[in-house]
Write a protein that binds this DNA or RNA. Structure first.
Lengths: 209, 209
DNA sequence: AAAAATTAATCAAACGTTTGTTTAATTCAA
DNA sequence: TTGAATTAAACAAACGTTTGATTAATTTTT
């Protein structure tokens, strides 16, 4: 069982699904693009659906470890924790932009019910952890009385939105064709600064710039 | 040419595409759900692709009129204009949640190139208008020196994110199954208040709460 | 160490379905 | 009665999947 080949198929699948969607991609397309025989996909993964599950399983849950650590961490202030979460999310999205497009599709479309519920479950768990941090900040009177759930929605929503479409991002930033915003370290920094600035202004009672 | 029937097919198509995606929905599914003969879809629209184009064309561009008006409007302050834009966006998303899921899919997946470019073009135009308002606010020293493009991304991204999945939204808010957040006037108000609060804190130099 | 047996990987071809679309016949309305 | 609306049936193409044969690699037996 060559894991090299399995991984290769998975990586090509992410590219293909990110561009054409899961239902819009055929196994024949995938096999051709990955330069393997059509039968190999089913040989390795069992079915197209199971390939998709393997794909999601491999890379989802990326924030679990970080949020678990933050929950027991007592040395960081609440705003430091939020900053850290923002950094990790931006890092993750920029290092795996195509995978996150596939993940967004799965949240958006509820075709494969169990996978859909699974992905949403992961996200809801993340939300609960971040909400707990914000609520603690509020109790400590470091944070304003904001809406914790929607504050997290703004963080993830902003990143999601910027990562939705390379074309949109490019045109929004008045860049030439050929420019890839997701490989531009400067743009990543720009997004980070914006998010932190906005969330600080939103959360902090004493926000000395 | 009964427009009633055409509209009926389009409305059922929005429901179906929002749930299963465009590629995930077959014309037979659509015909059955709309209770018409399979051939009627091609009779009225020519093809599945053209049905989709008609669907997008009918409802996209919903912000054009509002933004055009705001561009020439001199009686509103910049922050009032931003508030107005937030209100109109939230209104629109809450009145057409399923359509906006379909629209998001189209931005996310670039399967049908020309339609994809068209939708993104509309959005980029909206961005330019909002950016212009924010930049004027900055020049007038009413607004902080924020990132105008990403500020707009945060507004749309927050709404988009909340509208992505009913299930996610429900679970995030700890609601029982059966609850529909998009029909809950209270939740709509909650989103509005959060967005305005956050954007005010972010933009305004003198933000007296 | 050589031969035999077993397992894993790969392939082209074919399977039965489902797909979007078209046809040709029929019903309906003006 | 004419043109539009509607239908069931049929179309080729594409779909995910399975098959049975073949090769390559590994393990077991002698």
């Amino acid at each position: 069982m060559s894991n090299d080949k399995k991984d290769h198929i998975l990586n090509v699948a992410i590219e293909l699904f990110a561009e054409k969607g899961f239902e819009g991609s055929s196994i024949r397309d995938l096999a051709a693009k990955a330069d393997v025989n059509v039968a190999m996909v089913n040989y390795y993964f069992g079915s197209k659906d199971k390939l998709f599950e393997a794909l999601i399983e491999q890379k989802a849950g990326f924030m679990r470890g970080i949020l678990d650590e933050l929950r027991t961490n007592t040395s960081l202030t609440e705003i430091q924790k939020i900053d850290h979460i923002i950094e990790k999310y931006v890092d993750r999205f920029f290092s795996q932009p195509l995978f996150h497009k596939v993940l967004q599709q799965e949240v958006l479309v509820s075709q494969r019910a169990s996978m859909h519920e699974h992905v949403i479950g992961l996200f809801v768990k993340n939300t609960e952890d971040v909400v707990a941090i914000i609520e603690k900040g509020i109790r400590k009177k470091i944070f304003r009385k904001v809406d914790p759930q929607l504050t997290f929605s703004s963080i993830v929503g902003t990143i999601n939105h910027v990562m939705m479409s390379k074309t949109m991002c490019m045109k929004m930033l008045n860049k030439d064709p050929g420019y890839d915003p997701y490989k531009d370290e400067h743009f990543k920094k720009r997004l980070l600064i914006h998010l932190k600035q906005m969330i600080h202004a939103h959360l902090l009672i004493n926000n000395d710039l």
